[in-house]
Design a protein around this nucleic acid. Structure first.
Lengths: 189, 189
DNA sequence: GAAAAACATTGATCTGGATCAAAAAATCAG
DNA sequence: CTGATTTTTTGATCCAGATCAATGTTTTTC
């Protein structure tokens, strides 16, 4: 159950076995059914999740109720509503399992406790923040500098597995275009 | 010269006077003329800047040469091309002074050296990354969930000083709309 | 302080992608 | 396996905001 997470951590920071066991001991298992939601707008993010199997979808909800996908978390990815996890303020993005999903999670309190007691966890968190920032910026850059076709081509190039694994509807939503628009632009490439 | 930076640091982390002097000793002064550029696409980011007076504009350049503003850094703000600063890869955003601007800066090498030797600097960097991430995410959310008028109203509410201080052209560019579109939507509010 | 340059406004037209609608294809539940 | 739901495709129409153009206004420069 902890094997994938252990590899994830040791791939990113230098950590001895004792420290690793301490870290892992704070993670608990959770299985979600398809379409199950794990947080609610208005509450703060209380956990950070690691995906062993399955896939999470994180999305914003517009005022009119429309959803815009912010990110997917596939196997061996960490996921939380990081802005809320950081600030403690209510979250503005919903996380839902798009298929049956096996997770392990750590509570926000335990996460911050580890930051205080394990210097290597501070390094881990630094790494996590750096990657989250870089990914976020790439996505922002793509939205403000590229049209729908360019965004799709970039996705095909950088994350082909996403296009293979997800329905057109979800891919379109990730690109922030309608599924009709995606269908049309695919037929033109 | 270091007064504003010293306050910026002590407002964010717990640091004794000796540590503070060590940190400040790595910063050097630099004054930019209006429209002077401080980095070039293709090079990695080698410095982090702190604005004492003036204003920096950080922008992406599209394939067709059009510019899209990513961020402004006014007085008492840190600024770098953080994705490049983190990864060491060539930067994808240009930083230009939009007026005569007085800066102090630290080199990337010295910044990382401080991370190794001063635990409080690691905390400082964590804080910096967290805020950068949160701001980035807010901006991404605004772009994917709001139309031009809503983005403008949000800017007016959250950063009225930006609307006051900057030309319509720059405000429009920050909102990723044409200056004509901004002029029209303002007349309708 | 006058000429030049940059910026702001307003009008006309264009366009990428949204929305609405309906049919075809795929997936799911019992 | 079969009917029901969901997804995908294609067509018709619409709209927010872009672009082009012209004029007025402010700022810069010498």
């Amino acid at each position: 159950m902890y094997q994938q997470l252990a590899k994830y951590i040791t791939d990113r920071i230098v950590v001895n076995d004792e420290q690793l066991q301490v870290i892992l001991s704070y993670f608990k298992a959770l299985t979600l059914k398809k379409n199950e939601v794990i947080n609610n707008l208005g509450n703060p993010a209380r956990r950070m999740y690691f995906v062993n199997k399955g896939c999470l979808r994180v999305y914003f909800v517009k005022e009119d109720g429309a959803e815009v996908t912010r990110r997917f978390a596939f196997e061996n990815a960490l996921s939380t509503s990081l802005t809320s996890f950081i600030s403690g303020e209510p979250l503005t993005e919903i996380t839902k399992a798009i298929e049956t999903t096996e997770l392990v999670y750590i509570s926000r309190a335990d996460f911050y406790y580890l930051l205080d007691v394990l210097p290597c966890w501070e390094k881990f968190y630094r790494n996590l923040l750096e990657f989250a920032y870089v990914n976020n910026t790439r996505r922002l850059q793509s939205f403000v500098t590229q049209d729908a076709t360019e965004r799709y081509k970039l996705l095909l190039k950088e994350n082909p597995h996403m296009v293979q694994r997800l329905s057109n509807k979800l891919v379109a939503n990730y690109l922030n275009i309608s599924q009709e628009a995606l269908s049309r632009l695919k037929s033109k490439i």
